[in-house]
Design a protein around this nucleic acid. Structure first.
Length: 817
RNA sequence: GCCGGGAUGGCGGAACUGGCAGACGCAGCGGACUUAAAAUCCGCCGGAGCAAUCCUUGUGGGUUCGAGUCCCACUCCCGGCACCA
């Protein structure tokens, strides 16, 4: 075997050996503390690109590090296998989605194996297999029985391209489909929802978890909790049963400033309130806003418009009659779908009032206000005016005072509203887990009984997208009998959102092979996940759903923890040609060529080295040769015989001390960087150490035993990053297999301490000299040396020394005038 | 518009808690080895200047003995949210 780094020879060899020895198979029966390191599983789109490797290689390095630090590490892998892209790809190619997906999995599994990770493949989870989705369905039933799954007719997001409905979270940007980027439209459909809103308050709370601030903020914004007051306006319309319209406001203090009301076009009262002369205009407006997609409707560029209904309501606080309008800037899905308009103190209402010449009544006085008309809405706090008995109060107090008053009178109530909507999980597509529900003409909605799970996805469905679930046309699937009355009945033909599958996959890894339940008591050992790594794009989708899911099953007594992922870390995105890699964009860079040519270890290190992990960056392979060169040098350093020069025997001490110090400093640095997931500087430290070793070797001034100690430390520190090469060199240096079962080296703080430091001497903060001094130097000595420095003296000439600052171990700064 | 994150050599990036700016690597330049090339090894490598020295962390101000780091204002880039009453 050559002395050079030869990845083609060693990568496969060790991967095979590790697999044969089941080196990375983990068990719960282990005295070490557990560590559950999870990387978001990939979608089965075909093959893995560099972006996937960027997610997986560094997390594997960290998991290996934890393993060497004495943890029993679970680092599993699986496949997110249901969903639209597979179905679309299958349609395009005329292959069955199952065939397509399984072929992709095989390929991806192969790629994943080539990176040399410690995945325990015996725990693999594949969401599209009946043995998995049976439990997805089982959880659906649990949620159903707990009252957390319900069916309702609602205006929902419809993607015309994907031909299915989408959850709110899956509509991104200015109202486009998260998957395909098509503008989403509205449809009124009867769909299945999960009651995630019941957990809104708890989901707002991230106190017990260590997550990036950014993600926590995104989740909080998404949930959008706002506190305010719901109050009613009196209605008196002949033929209209309702005697009030309820509105939600966060500004009850402005209630005396209401000059009109606005209802959402979809508001149920609209058709009944509209006066005959306004009916045509109102109907036209309603029809128009229904047609518009969210991009048009929600665009803030567009001027707000609306129409008068011809109806009026009474502001109970002051008895004033206010006109009722409809406008599409009021959303049916938020609050009560109706707002009180206070143009003086709300920018939207101000614009609307200006456009339609509606009155503007000031009730919160800006500082120095003399009763003049406002140029724009005044939205800040101030002193209340024109507000009957509340006049003169600061508006913040007014909020409480008016809320109290409304509650006393029974006209209103303090409330909390959320932006978060219930999670819509129905999908009118084939490639997903069937919703285990049966419709019976006499019994209504009947859940499938547990023992009848899984509801198998039939293989022979016509899976073309028709806008209706393809399963609808599969009579064998649809026709069944009612579990309650045994009469002929129909199955639900929609499938579940794939985010349902990914809301619990991390539980399955903890209980592979469990056939009687989704998981068994082994779950208690592993969960929650200690470190979850993946992309930030899942902030308000997967990460929110999974939290909801765990809280829901916790309340059923199925698990005993509150949060699935104790610590979350988002690696950055690898981009190519300014864009995130994606098949549709055609800018995908495959790792395979790099791996086969330069070795898995080289690619692993390069991905860590390009920059801070959380930052990501543009893919550029120009630096990868530096990693190859380095690993080659490491190889030469370790493999080629070390020889002490005879004349060096007496000079041994200094070289030895320096090397020992470098060794311990490197152990410290690498350990600390590993803990903080600072892989780029960790690699740099190892390179520096290698450079130091090369100089030592060149000098030949060291006893062979000391040399060997340093090399051993180097190999151990390298092991998580370059598992194949480290294993090879470990063997070549005469150690016992396997380096991956060794303990991580410890550093000794005293041995790591510098003996000599560079003392920087400044005059007025400018660097003037640096001198090498013993680390033990005293302040007095340092000040004296500084004052005596010949390079410093000219700057002190003829100046008055005001003071001298001394920073131990760093510098002396002489301040002169 | 609002909320995050960021801006440092030709490039990716480093810099503890306010204390030597540019670690480590890429590219480049020079040299050694070689018939030659590749590979490898050694040296140089922010800008200006012969030099002493001066300038330099997006821009402008401030605090400090001392600022890439702290404060204020601004510009640009990236990400998220965006009529949420």
């Amino acid at each position: 075997m050559s002395d050079r780094y030869n990845p083609q020879e060693i990568d496969g060899k060790w991967q095979q050996r590790w697999a044969e020895d089941k080196l990375y198979q983990v068990s719960e029966d282990d005295p070490r503390p557990k560590w559950y390191a999870l990387t978001m599983f990939p979608y089965t789109s075909g093959d893995l690109h560099i972006g996937h490797w960027y997610a997986m290689a560094p997390s594997d390095v960290h998991a290996r590090f934890k393993r060497m630090r004495g943890y029993n590490v679970l680092h599993p892998m699986g496949f997110d296998a249901f969903g639209l892209p597979a179905e679309n790809a299958a349609i395009k190619r005329g292959i069955h989605p199952f065939t397509w997906t399984m072929k992709n999995i095989e390929n991806m599994r192969c790629q994943l194996k080539s990176i040399g990770a410690i995945y325990d493949w015996s725990r693999e989870a594949v969401t599209c297999l009946p043995e998995y989705y049976q439990w997805t369905q089982w959880f659906f039933l649990k949620l159903y029985h707990a009252g957390l799954a319900y069916r309702a007719k609602a205006p929902v997001n419809w993607c015309p391209h994907c031909q299915t409905v989408l959850a709110n979270e899956q509509v991104v940007g200015s109202g486009v489909c998260e998957r395909c980027g098509t503008a989403v439209t509205r449809r009124d459909l009867e769909q299945w929802f999960f009651r995630i809103t019941r957990y809104a308050d708890e989901l707002m709370e991230h106190r017990s978890i260590d997550w990036p601030e950014r993600i926590k903020t995104m989740q909080r914004n998404w949930i959008g909790r706002s506190t305010g007051t719901e109050l009613s306006f009196a209605l008196d319309h002949p033929g209209v049963e309702e005697k009030e319209i309820r509105v939600f406001t966060t500004r009850p203090d402005t209630a005396f400033g209401v000059t009109f009301m606005v209802l959402a076009p979809e508001h149920p009262l609209v058709t009944r309130l509209v006066s005959p002369d306004r009916r045509a205009a109102v109907e036209e407006y309603v029809a128009r806003s229904r047609q518009q997609n969210d991009i048009e409707r929600l665009s803030t560029e567009r001027e707000r418009d609306g129409v008068f209904t011809g109806a009026y309501a009474i502001n109970r606080l002051n008895g004033e009659r206010v006109s009722i309008w409809i406008a599409d800037y009021v959303l049916m899905g938020y609050g009560t779908g109706a707002v009180m308009a206070v143009p003086a103190h709300d920018t939207r209402d101000f614009d609307f009032a200006s456009k339609y010449n509606l009155p503007i009544k000031v009730v919160i006085a800006p500082a120095g206000w003399q009763g003049e008309e406002l140029e724009e809405a005044y939205t800040e706090p101030g002193i209340m005016v024109n507000s009957a008995q509340f006049t003169g109060l600061p508006s913040q107090q007014g909020m409480d005072a008016i809320s109290d008053f409304l509650e006393e009178k029974g006209w209103g109530k303090r409330t909390i509203t959320y932006r978060l909507r219930d999670w819509l999980i129905s999908r009118q597509r084939y490639w997903g887990a069937p919703i285990p529900i049966i419709y019976c003409d006499s019994c209504g909605i009947v859940p499938v009984t547990e023992k009848d799970l899984p509801v198998l996805l039939p293989e022979d469905a016509e899976f073309k997208p028709t806008g209706e679930s393809p399963l609808k046309y599969n009579r064998q699937f649809v026709n069944t009998t009612c579990p309650q009355c045994s009469a002929p009945a129909r199955r639900e033909t929609d499938t579940m959102d794939t985010f349902m599958c990914s809301s619990w996959y991390f539980l399955r890894y903890a209980s592979p092979g469990c056939h009687s339940a989704p998981f068994d008591r082994r779950l208690k050992y592993w969960l929650p996940v200690d470190l979850y790594t993946g992309g930030a794009e899942h902030a308000v989708m997967h990460l929110l759903y999974a939290r909801f899911f765990i809280k829901a099953i916790r309340d059923m007594g199925l698990v005993d923890f509150d949060e699935p992922f104790t610590r979350l870390f988002n690696q950055g995105t690898i981009i190519a040609q300014k864009h995130k890699m994606s098949k549709s964009r055609g800018n995908v860079v495959t790792p395979d060529g790099y791996v086969s040519e330069l070795g898995a270890d080289t690619v692993r290190v390069y991905l860590m080295f390009i920059g801070p992990w959380e930052q990501g960056g543009e893919w550029n392979d120009s630096g990868i040769s530096g990693i190859s060169r380095w690993l080659n040098r490491v190889c030469g350093l370790v493999v080629e015989e070390y020889q002490m020069k005879p004349e060096a025997v007496t000079g041994d001490n200094k070289v030895r001390g320096d090397l020992q110090r470098a060794t311990h400093q490197t152990i410290r640095k690498v350990t600390e960087d590993m803990e903080r997931l600072r892989f780029n500087t960790m690699v740099a430290a190892l390179m520096e150490f290698t450079n130091h070793l090369a100089k030592v070797k060149e000098s030949g001034g060291l006893a062979a035993s000391a040399w060997k100690e340093a090399i051993d430390a180097l190999l151990l520190l390298l092991a998580p990053s370059v598992p194949h090469l480290a294993e090879e060199l470990w063997m070549r240096t005469g150690h016992e297999y396997s380096i991956h079962n060794q303990r991580w080296p410890e550093w000794d703080e005293t041995l790591a301490e510098d003996e000599e430091i560079t003392l920087v001497i400044q005059v007025n903060g400018k660097l003037r000299d640096r001198i090498a001094v013993p680390a033990s130097i005293t302040e007095v000595e340092a000040r004296q040396l500084a004052a005596e420095s010949t390079r410093v003296k000219p700057y002190l000439q003829g100046k008055e020394a005001l003071k001298t600052i001394y920073v131990p171990g760093r510098l002396v700064n002489i301040v002169v005038k």
